[in-house]
Design a protein around this nucleic acid. Structure first.
Ligand SMILES: [Mn+2]
Ligand SMILES: [Mn+2]
Ligand SMILES: [Zn+2]
Ligand SMILES: [Zn+2]
Lengths: 153, 153
DNA sequence: TGGCTATTGCAATACATTCGCAATCAAAAG
DNA sequence: CTTTTGATTGCGAATGTATTGCAATAGCCA
C-alpha cells in the first residue's frame, strides 16, 4: 500500500531532480550557498506550498529566518518559486517547474486546512472575454478554492 | 459627459440605499454607533474594495483606527462586508448586497493599481467536477485577475 | 591559495492587525 | 426625562509577518 494513495493530481508536481534545480541555480550568476541549497532541497520534497517559517523549521540551524525570506524572494525573482495565498495572511511558496503546464491551484479545507492540488483552471476563453471587456492585457489570475474535506464534513 | 463612462460593470454594485443598510444594522442586536454609521456611509460610497487605512483616512476624527478594524470584522461576521485580497498583503473590503448575485471579482493593473469589477466567475460546472474529484463540499473560490490596464500597456 | 564581492547572521525596524482596559455611550428600563 | 447597564470605544501596548542595515563570512574566480 503506497503512501501516495491519497494524492489526487499526481502529475501536477512532477519535478526535475534536485540536481537539475541546482544546475539551474548554478547556470545563473548566483552563488550556490548552503541556505540556497538546503532551501531548494526542502522545497523539492514538499507536495504543497510551505510558509517561510515552515521552511525555516524544516532546515533549522542551516540558515537564519531572514535568509529564508531573502532566498525565497530571490527564487521568486528568478522564477523558481511561485507564491500562493490561502487567505490567512501568510505567504506560501512552491517550487514550480518552468513552463505553463505546471500552473495550478489548490483547495483548502476550512476546518483542518488540508490542501489538495487542483489542475482545473480558469477558462482561457473567459480570460479573452475579460480582456476584450476591460482592455487589460497580459492577464493572469490568482485562484484558490475553499471547502470542507471528506474528513471534516 | 458622465463621470461614470469608464465603468465596465455598472450592475455589479447596485446597492440598497444607505438608510436600508442602517435599518439592517438596527434589525440586529447591535448598537448604531458613530463609528458604525460613518464606516457604513463611507463603504456605501465606494465603487471598489477599500483598505482599513483608506476607510480610516476617509472618516478621520470620527473613529479610531482600531475601531475601524473591529467594525470591519464585525461587518464581515454579519455578512455586510466581503474581504478581497489583491496580493499585496493588505486586506480590502467592500459592502456587498446580500444574495449570490453580487458575488464578483476584480482585475488590478500591475502598474497603476487601477481596479475594475469583473462579473465573470469560475464556472459552476467545473466547481462540481472539482467537488467530485476531491470529495470536498461547500466549495467557494477566491479569484482575482491581474494585468496591464489600457493606460499602462 | 588569496582576494573580491555577494551573501549571511543578527538585531533593529516597518507595518498590518489584534488586544487589554478604563472610559464612554446607545439603548432599555424606570 | 433620568438612571442604569452592558456593549462599544479610544488609546496604547502587543503580536506576527516581513524587510533592512551592517559587519562578518564564505563562494567563486584569478
Ligand atoms: Mn501546489
Ligand atoms: Mn468589487
Ligand atoms: Zn489557473
Ligand atoms: Zn466567482
Amino acid at each position: 500500500m503506497k503512501t501516495e494513495e491519497l494524492h489526487c493530481c499526481g502529475d501536477i508536481h512532477k519535478r526535475a531532480s534536485l540536481d537539475k534545480w541546482i544546475e539551474r541555480l548554478q547556470s545563473t550568476k548566483l552563488k550556490l550557498t548552503t541556505p540556497r541549497h538546503v532551501i531548494l532541497e526542502f522545497l523539492h520534497k514538499q507536495s504543497h506550498p510551505a510558509t517561510n517559517r515552515e521552511i525555516y523549521n524544516g532546515i533549522s540551524n542551516d540558515c537564519d529566518l531572514a535568509s529564508v525570506y531573502r532566498t525565497i524572494n530571490l527564487f521568486i525573482k528568478i522564477g523558481f518559486v511561485h507564491q500562493f495565498d490561502f487567505g490567512d495572511g501568510i505567504a506560501r511558496f512552491e517550487l514550480i517547474e518552468p513552463g505553463l503546464d505546471s500552473h495550478h491551484h489548490h483547495i483548502i479545507c476550512n476546518d483542518c486546512s488540508k490542501v489538495i492540488e487542483i489542475d482545473h483552471c480558469f477558462p482561457e476563453s473567459l480570460t479573452k472575454t475579460i480582456s476584450k471587456h476591460t482592455g487589460f492585457s497580459r492577464i493572469k489570475h490568482k485562484l484558490e478554492f475553499f471547502g470542507l474535506c471528506p474528513n471534516c464534513q
